[in-house]
Design a protein around this nucleic acid. Sequence first.
DNA 1: ATATCGATTATCT
DNA 2: GATAATCGATATG
Length: 214
Amino acid sequence: MPLRDSRRAVLLSQKFFDRDPRVVARALLGKLLVRRTPQGLLVGRVVETEAYLGTGDPAAHSFSGKTPRNAVLFGPPGHAYVYFIYGNHYCLNVSCLPDGVPGGVLFRALEPLVGLETMALARDIEWSGKDDLRRISSGPGRMAEAFGITRDRDNGKDFTSPRSDLQLRNDGYRVRRVGVTRRIGILKAAEEPLRYIIYGNPYVSGPRAWAART
DNA sequence: ATATCGATTATCT
DNA sequence: GATAATCGATATG
């Protein structure tokens, strides 16, 4: 999985996100999450996502209507929705569907590629050169911490702007096989097959043995 | 390997 | 006052 050149990789457009969250969640697998920070560049490859349908999905934050917290999900596509959960963790999402129609995709895991030392430091993992790369960004709270994502700093940011410090890019990486499973960590609408993974990728979160398929 | 549990707070009822 | 799109630690097979 060679990283060609994360800076030259093409920026995903707003149109990319102006689609059903299920389509976007699947299409995001293999893309690069790029973060510019004062301490340098951070890049990870998206290996796990979950779709949250804006309406008709009891597990979606937008299910009960627009509030100050979830407003980004109702806004234009391609923007960062960051929420705080369990008193400890931030989770990063991207808004989908046109302005006025709610919907989003939760980023659940990344394969760390660039800025490993900075990410390990942010995660408070002692860095021995390779250590356990899987602990850096496999899980929504973990990857947010590795990338320094917070609500104050990042909620509402435009992923598709060339000037944004938070971007999604396509470097041409081809996903061989996609697995679909039920979503993790929810009680409502838990059986819906809306979690997408790069099948067999070691950086996917959760137990190793999922009954995934294509 | 799986199971259970505590931490800690924004948000909503 | 209850809940939550999680994590890390602990216990047990």
